[in-house]
Write a protein that binds this DNA or RNA. Sequence first.
DNA 1: GTGAAAGCGCTAACAC
DNA 2: GTGTTAGCGCTTTCAC
Lengths: 339, 339
Amino acid sequence: MSRPTIHDVARIAGVSLSTVDRVLNDREGVRRATRARVAEAMQQLGYERNIAAANLARRRQYRLLFVLPAGGNSFMRGLEREIGARAEAWEFTAISVTTVPPFDDAALAGALQSIDPAQTDGVAVVATDSAAVRAALAALRDRGVAVVTLVSDLPSSRRQHFVGIDNVQAGRTAASLLGRFCRGRTGSIVTVAGSMLVRDHAERRLGFEQVLRQEFSDQRVLPPLEGFDDQDIVAAQLAELLARTPDVVGIYSLGAGTRGVARAMAQARPDAPSVVVHELTAHSRQALLDGTFDAVIHQDPVREISVAVSLLQSLIEGGAIDPEAARIGIEVYLRDNLP
Amino acid sequence: MSRPTIHDVARIAGVSLSTVDRVLNDREGVRRATRARVAEAMQQLGYERNIAAANLARRRQYRLLFVLPAGGNSFMRGLEREIGARAEAWEFTAISVTTVPPFDDAALAGALQSIDPAQTDGVAVVATDSAAVRAALAALRDRGVAVVTLVSDLPSSRRQHFVGIDNVQAGRTAASLLGRFCRGRTGSIVTVAGSMLVRDHAERRLGFEQVLRQEFSDQRVLPPLEGFDDQDIVAAQLAELLARTPDVVGIYSLGAGTRGVARAMAQARPDAPSVVVHELTAHSRQALLDGTFDAVIHQDPVREISVAVSLLQSLIEGGAIDPEAARIGIEVYLRDNLP
DNA sequence: GTGAAAGCGCTAACAC
DNA sequence: GTGTTAGCGCTTTCAC
């Protein structure tokens, strides 16, 4: 026997296809009693809707927009490239991307305000933390646009979901690794951030310091450098610090600008500090292979995109969302398990 | 404009829908010239076939069988459970599972021989290495059944693909972690295997020793224990070894029976050895949380199942397979990035 | 060799 | 409130 269809349900319930359809899609214009009869028939048959057929008939187009920071951030450029490459892969979905200056909440708020709700069903945005951004998101929601945050969250806003890693946990993971790597050597640990104004960086630092203070308390955690995800600034600041501080045993780079870290390490001493950074890119991969970096904490951009898309689709449909299916894992790469 | 359909192609090529369909599905009964005209029309329109619609019309059923080792191996039981839970999720696909005694190649070969090719379109099997198993796989292939190996490979057989991690790399990853964790302490490193007769265990040990010898050559690697994935045997063997060898600084458990490792560690000294094990289960997770284990190397069973299913589906269709989409990553978990 | 027509399971007008 | 009907893009008989 093959799976029951709405025809079977209609026959058992003694109604027409349209009525079954109305019940299925929770549309009005069905008497309570009829609704109950149909529901019971579904129950009895173990009816499961065929989504492919539904979409085929519906020929609906979801119009989604990704809002990402511009600039030389390899991770973000990778995200953008993957969105472009996969745009065709989603049936019934038209995806576009727009970029805004990084670490600039006014620019982001402006970009969000200029979205036309009539042309857009859902938005995925890499958030910067500010009242203006919050307000812009709320305005979108009020006009029926579905909103999820991507990579960096904005918890107290009206965004409906966050797609990205738990950044406190990511920071803790980095500390667990770096603390273990540095066991036996005691000294200073450097953290290199992009900006404490973006939530993901602040959270990573929090988690990192929690674990380091608690479990590896013989190490000294230096105040974080702020490199604004710019490799030149990072390289300069870090080189200067390393020259000035001979006892550095570990480095945690929790933002972008990772190439700057590799450059500052190039002229390192024989017993170089252990290094943990974020995001697997062509450069961090290379640094892992040549031994400059010890570990890379990563989030899978392809998965983030596909989760964001399917989350937005079900939010637009008003459907239920499975938090487990929306989880993004904190991945750990060493030289030996590189994909 | 919406995507072109076979109607458009038919119109442009000046043929009927059926002819377009014949060309699309590479069926015979079309003149070369007609075929070319259709192909050109597709080219010109940028036609892309709608797979959902095709499957809807075709109403095909793929009948797939998973062959797994029986016994108390948590990872395998997890796989089996997930297959059951997700069996409904695949449209047009009927999935069943059969189990055979572990580490028993005759039993496995027998189970494979008893598969009815008329009732089965594809098989995913956790392989044991033996000539009989190879022969059974070849017989299945000869009768038109698609075959992939799962978790443990059988490279020189006629299986069409392997779904699982690169186990040499997994062993290398374990060594990279354990070597770094033990830095500063020099002593013996223990490896605990299930059986060297299954390929995945042998490969993990190979990779592990490669890296340890090369990069952490001050550590002494002891000959591996063989615990047959049985927690009692593992616990006994390991406890005995630890009592006898006071300088153990690291333990790598590369098979199942991981609960036995945790039990042997329970009465450990204050400066306990660092421990790296395979497969995230309820027990290894607990051991990670309470500090008994330092890291877990994992492969995602849910992903393995879905990759195996889609791989088998495209093999049955004779379609192309994307090796990147079939990759299974080597995941690393610490206490802090547990899902 | 090629085409016409009837579905696959579901939706969306429009009738009643 | 409920039913009828004509599709969505593709496959599959069965004629010609």
